[in-house]
Design a protein around this nucleic acid. Structure first.
Lengths: 343, 343
DNA sequence: TTGAAAGCGTTACCAT
DNA sequence: ATGGTAACGCTTTCAA
């Protein structure tokens, strides 16, 4: 079904050396023979053995991604697929493969060591960094090329990252609610040991502070962003005497739970209570007084994946003049959507 | 940072052979030396080089997954992440890695050839099979271990698969609507060259047929399951004189578009019009006359990933007495959900 | 129970 | 411009 280098070179009456150089576009092989070689390779369905090549070159042409496994057994963060897809298309273009591992939270250190020491990967993508993420320091000290999706605020040494401007996104979402007259606003945030959640919270508080509104500590929540989280906390909020008029929430999934709770209570979302979510993926904007508006925006996440992949490959290849920090602005979709969301 | 076999064996005063056998639990090495070897390996952070090991054994201990890249630039199917996560945890347990490639639709044949011929993977997972999927025949004839997420109805030769009972799921969803008195029901199905969409359609039609209800061809749609698909088709349906009283739809994302269109029209979902979606991931059941109910069920998709991974690994290792066909029943959540969805 | 050496399929160095 | 040979790090015969 497929030949190896030895068989290919024998069939051509050339040495393995020459054939290898022909295939890899070395300058010191004549055009004529190169063509012969490439033609034969195609004809015989020659595919270089990836492992042998890796052994010889010391490179795997593979990038490792590690899925953060969440503690609840609910859905995996849906942005994961988009991010992977974006990164993967860039890898394909550069001849890289993507290796995905899933690991229980806590034993991450070990798997990075594994992947790198075994030579399985040339570089690593870190997802879901905490405020002061050990992995960044670990990989830095190991000298392994890596890049981070997100940032780790407490780490001062420079490192490559791609992030969405989460603070600004939540600031704008909150500003919107304030401009609609809301003063009692609840925040259903993600787990605040994760860096992005801290930034979102800061944006929320900044918007309130700018208008001299005091945040009510009893209206700030921080949990894993599941659907039931949105449901249960909202239910609880709506049972209070002093209930909020608006809720800012941290993910589509959670927002769906919020909506369910509001409807269960006999209220109408966007009328009795306003909800805004503005994460990497979606803007969900049922605004005060008006009908609810739901708008799916084209995913910024896959762009983040692409940018990160480009960056990491550049780093692996020692390309110096590449940006190593990229901040993407999340698009805020305001108002009623009238047609398809492609526009 | 990490040693290789040569260095490890030298530090022990043993041959590479003995050390290798000790590490791999061969019976012909004494317990005492095995312990010495393993201790030293741990102490020196020895990790066998994956590529060298692969070269020597002829196996990569890696499974290939190929992401079907959708034609629209909207969100990647959110079940993808869960499926990957489930499979990946099984791989980890068995010492396998997962290689993910993304490829444009159409050039799949080539990438399978690539992955296999280059020895990058020991087995392959096929996602999103069509009614008569070439890839199944291709891999069968190449003799490569593979397993399919979903089925390919038109292929008669046996092959290993894991699938959700899509026909039954849609049959039950439709039955539910009929039992609530609905007679004019629209179907927003996925692309019907994909096998699962055909099965869903069959289930829908079967439920109607059983009650002697004739399906209106003008109410059957088949497109890529995006949010805007749900929005645009629903908008169009609602503009008709003879509009449906209920809609069955094929994915959460599409259902969100449906909801948006209903709300945009000033109608209320679950009151003026009922909507049911019942895919692998979610049941979404705003039923006729009652308040809308949204319930996220724990993902069956990650279980599918696990089962498929187990199956494929068994196949690779030649374990005969394993089931090679698994049909999972999608859980239908009916009625009002009162609490968290973990239950 | 242990060790020497060949072999896996490439690339890279050094000749010619 | 082409070829011979060592080297990559491991497993696996075959001997001892």
């Amino acid at each position: 079904m497929s030949v190896n280098l030895k068989e290919l070179s024998e069939s051509l009456g050339l040495s393995q050396t020459t054939v290898s150089r022909g295939l890899n576009n070395y300058s010191d092989v004549s055009e004529a023979t190169r063509k012969r070689i490439k033609d034969a390779a195609k004809r015989l369905n020659y595919r270089p053995n990836a492992r042998a090549k890796g052994l010889a070159t010391g490179k795997s042409r593979t990038i490792g991604h590690v899925i953060p496994s969440n503690t609840q057994h609910e859905m995996v963060n849906p942005i994961f697929g988009d991010f992977i897809a974006g990164a993967s298309s860039v890898y394909a273009r550069h001849g890289y493969n993507m290796l995905v591992s899933r690991v229980a939270q806590g034993s991450e250190t070990e798997i990075y060591n594994d992947l790198i020491s075994s030579g399985a990967v040339d570089g690593i993508v870190i997802q879901g960094p905490t405020e002061k993420d050990q992995r960044i320091e670990q990989l830095s000290s190991m000298g392994t090329p890596f890049a981070v999706h997100g940032r780790s605020s407490a780490i001062t040494k420079p490192y490559p990252w791609v992030d969405v401007n989460n603070q600004r996104a939540f600031e704008r979402a909150t500003q919107l609610l304030i401009s609609l007259g809301h003063r009692k606003i609840a925040l259903l945030n993600g787990l605040e040991h994760l860096d992005f959640a801290v930034r979102r919270r800061n944006g929320f508080l900044k918007a309130l502070g700018a208008q001299g509104i005091e945040a009510d500590p009893d209206m700030l929540f921080s949990e894993e962003m599941t659907e039931s989280y949105g449901y249960l906390r909202t239910k609880e909020l709506l049972d209070r005497k002093d209930l909020p008029t608006a809720i800012v929430t941290s993910s589509l999934i959670t927002a769906l739970g919020v909506r369910r709770a509001i409807e269960d209570s006999g209220r109408r979302m966007g009328k009795d209570i306003s909800v805004v979510t503005h994460d990497d993926m979606l803007s969900y904007l049922p605004n005060g007084g008006a009908e609810p508006v739901f708008t799916a925006t084209r995913s910024a996440v896959s762009e983040a994946g692409e940018r990160l992949a480009e960056m990491l490959i550049a780093e692996i290849n020692g390309d110096e003049d590449q940006p190593s920090e990229v901040l993407l602005e999340a698009e805020l979709v305001i108002g009623r959507s009238t047609g398809a969301s492609e526009t």
